[in-house]
């Protein structure tokens, strides 16, 4: 199949970007979206043009590195799918495909389609952990954890930190990411000691990073490759209030 691509190109974070028109020819429907871009890059290189920069690594939907807004939708048209797991059979021959980077002031573009998601790491640094050093942990079975709590924690912990929630949110809010981590640790007995401080610090850091605010539009859960529900945002809101009241 042949496709008409409109790819965002930007030399560096300070430069002005533009859309480059590229025709992708002879694309197999079995290719992943990134493999299609590989083909495009090989062709650009052969023509003496610089290949398109995009983030990717594991290409099996778990590392969270890949990050493209495809025709206006983060990770493209398939629900619950990262860009690296999106296959070209979901596109039509001759289709125009607009490819943009995550757009959020807190995720500045580094080059072309690659953005800096360091803000997420700083949010985790603020409190997204249980403060236990190696060595002193009690036996793994010392504290029973109900199956429901473990499953709930896992539902939230499935987040791959790709940032699609921010990219899709009309306000570039990071609530779903933060809520997932807060909910994961709040669901487990091991997370109780720092429960209140964690949510306070993580929210404070999130605000400081310049993300927008949640207006309950739920675009985030629609694009989340791990289909993490906005229910967790409600949970975080409650956690935050509880933390502030207990204070």
């Amino acid at each position: 199949m042949n496709l008409k691509l409109r790819i965002w190109r930007q030399k560096n974070s300070g430069a002005k970007g533009y859309f480059q028109k590229v025709d992708a020819k002879g694309i197999s429907p079995d290719m992943s979206f990134l493999e299609m871009l590989d083909v495009v890059n090989e062709e650009l290189l052969a023509k003496g043009e610089e290949p398109v920069i995009f983030d990717h690594d594991c290409r099996e939907g778990i590392c969270g590195a890949c990050s493209l807004v495809i025709n206006g939708v983060a990770h493209g048209p398939e629900r619950g799918t990262t860009t690296c797991q999106l296959h070209m059979r979901h596109f039509k021959d001759g289709q125009i495909i607009v490819i943009e980077p995550w757009r959020a002031s807190a995720f500045p573009v580094l080059k072309d389609l690659a953005v800096d998601r360091g803000a997420f790491d700083r949010i985790i640094q603020a409190g997204g952990f249980v403060s236990v050093g190696a060595g002193g942990a009690p036996d793994g079975n010392a504290i029973p954890v109900s199956k429901n709590s473990a499953e709930l924690a896992m539902d939230a912990a499935a987040c791959i930190g790709c940032g699609a929630c921010v990219a899709a949110c009309k306000n570039a809010s990071a609530m779903l990411f933060v809520a997932a981590k807060v909910s994961h640790l709040a669901a487990l007995p091991q997370g109780q000691v720092e429960r209140a401080a964690r949510v306070e610090r993580m929210v404070a850091q999130m605000d400081q990073e310049g993300f927008g605010n949640c207006t309950n539009q739920f675009e985030c859960q629609a694009v989340c490759p791990k289909e993490i529900g906005v229910w967790f945002i409600a949970k975080m809101n409650k956690e935050y209030l509880k933390a502030k009241i207990c204070q």
């Binding site: 942990a137 009690p138 473990a150 924690a153 994961h184």
Partner: peptide, 15 residues
Amino acid sequence: IDQCVAQGVPFAREY
């Protein structure tokens, strides 16, 4: 395993 449980790794659990 002890260390990871303490960190909040959500291992599968029995009922």
